Amino acid sequence: MAAESSEPKSRARQYLEVVTGPLEDKKRWRQYKARIKALPENYRVAVEAMERYLMHFGPGDGADAASMFEDLADLFERGAADGTPIREIFGEDPVEFVEAFIQSYSRGSYIRRERDRLTSAVERAAGEDTTRDRRV
């Protein structure tokens, strides 16, 4: 996606973005939804199911989420263009596929952060070394 303009934002836009989040993320979301709408029905149904799952367990912040959904659209657009069957994209276990997909975008995931916090707290309580690198 194109980078945001280097031009300073107006005061009104700054206030608006405090309330609604970055407008660029919203634009990216609308573009993603338009791409998904253009897919053949069976691919669209599969993407929308995955999208629902990702809304709960995917990255929480706008930029990571926008990138993830754009990559999801790329994946299914390529699959549709190549005629790849849905089951071939997902494999035998759709949840396993989605969880593997999420791992590339887990930096913003509140679930990942909370898992890491829990692990770290237990390690500290047990007197163990907590200096290992964590993706938070």
Results as ranks from 00 to 15, higher is better:
2 A>V: 02
4 E>I: 07
4 E>S: 11
5 S>T: 13
7 E>P: 00
8 P>K: 00
9 K>F: 12
10 S>Y: 07
11 R>L: 15
12 A>I: 04
13 R>G: 03
13 R>A: 07
15 Y>W: 12
15 Y>R: 00
16 L>W: 03
17 E>T: 01
17 E>L: 03
18 V>S: 04
18 V>M: 10
18 V>C: 05
19 V>M: 06
22 P>I: 02
23 L>Y: 04
23 L>G: 02
26 K>I: 01
27 K>H: 03
29 W>Y: 02
30 R>V: 03
33 K>N: 07
34 A>P: 12
38 A>E: 05
38 A>R: 02
39 L>H: 08
40 P>Y: 12
41 E>R: 00
41 E>L: 07
42 N>H: 10
45 V>C: 01
46 A>Y: 08
46 A>F: 12
50 M>A: 13
50 M>F: 09
51 E>T: 06
52 R>H: 12
56 H>C: 08
61 D>Y: 07
65 A>S: 05
66 A>R: 00
66 A>P: 01
66 A>K: 00
69 F>W: 03
69 F>R: 10
73 A>I: 09
75 L>E: 06
75 L>Y: 02
76 F>D: 09
77 E>N: 10
83 G>Y: 13
84 T>M: 14
85 P>Q: 00
90 F>K: 00
92 E>G: 06
93 D>I: 07
94 P>N: 04
95 V>R: 15
98 V>Y: 10
98 V>R: 15
100 A>F: 06
101 F>M: 05
101 F>Q: 05
101 F>D: 03
104 S>M: 05
107 R>P: 08
114 E>A: 13
115 R>S: 14
120 S>Y: 08
126 A>V: 11
128 E>C: 09
131 T>L: 15
134 R>N: 11
134 R>M: 15
136 V>Y: 15
